[in-house]
């Protein structure tokens, strides 16, 4: 697919970071370019650059202003071909078990009803999709997913919940998510996975990364309980496959 992508912009984020922005929309082509640029800059290991944070459509470049002249670094970044960063690294493919509805997904019925679907149809639509991990953000390991079926697009709750359980599988607007730790959220909870996207005591502590793809596998409450017990002992429960496994 050929298309014209917006030009790259380098924006100021104070005196210890720049934002390299390659677009302002949710677009897999833009996200691919961000992930490719992230890989290039990690490889380049520019002096003074301390941390890179890829998001949907921008790359936050943290630097240590005591270690490098900010103007010099800005010049170096401007000298890069930001719009042609090459290929994004290949993502991995995950199949994530989810227990839908009931105490594990308290908003499932309401979301189905709002869209004129039966609960079974809503689960089929959600579990039938292939999702792209656009970004890990908000909380440790929290995965923002794109690719939600239009029939499940649901505006965020007017009153966010102050607490939602770890492992919540939710939808908000056009997006879907897998949460990692107990956190406030205004999204609708369709189900819960026993998989711990973040467990600081486990190796590796994190599972998902930007550029990965995710599918869901419905499980019942009994399987959820059995898997949750294993996850509590540090079992990641799922292993990644090459992304081609999810190619349609």
């Amino acid at each position: 697919m050929t298309e014209t992508l917006p030009p790259a912009r380098i924006l100021h984020a104070g005196d210890a970071a720049f934002v390299i922005e390659l677009g302002e929309t949710v677009d897999p082509a833009i996200n691919d370019r961000i992930l490719a640029l992230d890989a290039r800059l990690r490889e380049a290991a520019l002096p003074g650059v301390t941390e890179l944070v890829p998001t949907y459509r921008s790359l936050l470049v943290h630097f240590d202003p005591d270690a490098v002249d900010g103007l010099e670094l800005l010049g170096r970044l401007r000298g890069l071909d930001l719009e042609h960063p090459g290929e994004a690294p290949a993502g991995r493919a995950w199949t994530v078990p989810v227990c839908y509805g009931g105490e594990h997904g308290v908003d499932l019925e309401e979301v189905a009803e709002r869209h004129g679907l039966t609960v079974e149809e809503a689960v089929r639509l959600h579990a039938g999709g292939t999702y792209r991990v656009y970004m890990i953000g908000f909380a440790p390991g929290f995965a923002y997913l794109g690719g939600l079926d239009q029939r499940l697009h649901t505006p965020r709750r007017v009153n966010p919940r102050l607490k939602t359980p770890a492992g919540s599988v939710s939808v908000g607007g056009i997006q879907a998510a897998i949460s990692s730790v107990e956190a406030p959220s205004g999204w609708h909870l369709l189900g819960q996975t026993p998989v711990r996207a973040f467990d600081p005591g486990r190796e590796p502590p994190f599972l998902f990364a930007a550029g990965d793809t995710v599918r869901f596998r419905p499980i019942d409450a009994a399987e959820f309980a059995a898997l949750a017990a294993r996850a509590a002992d540090g079992d990641p429960l799922i292993r990644p496959e090459p992304a081609s496994e999810h190619a349609s």
């Binding site: 970071a17 934002v19 949710v26 943290h62």
Partner: peptide, 11 residues
């Protein structure tokens, strides 16, 4: 609303 991007201390 913007499509989420990164934050720094002081944003």
């Amino acid at each position: 609303n913007i499509v989420s991007d990164g934050t720094v201390a002081g944003s």
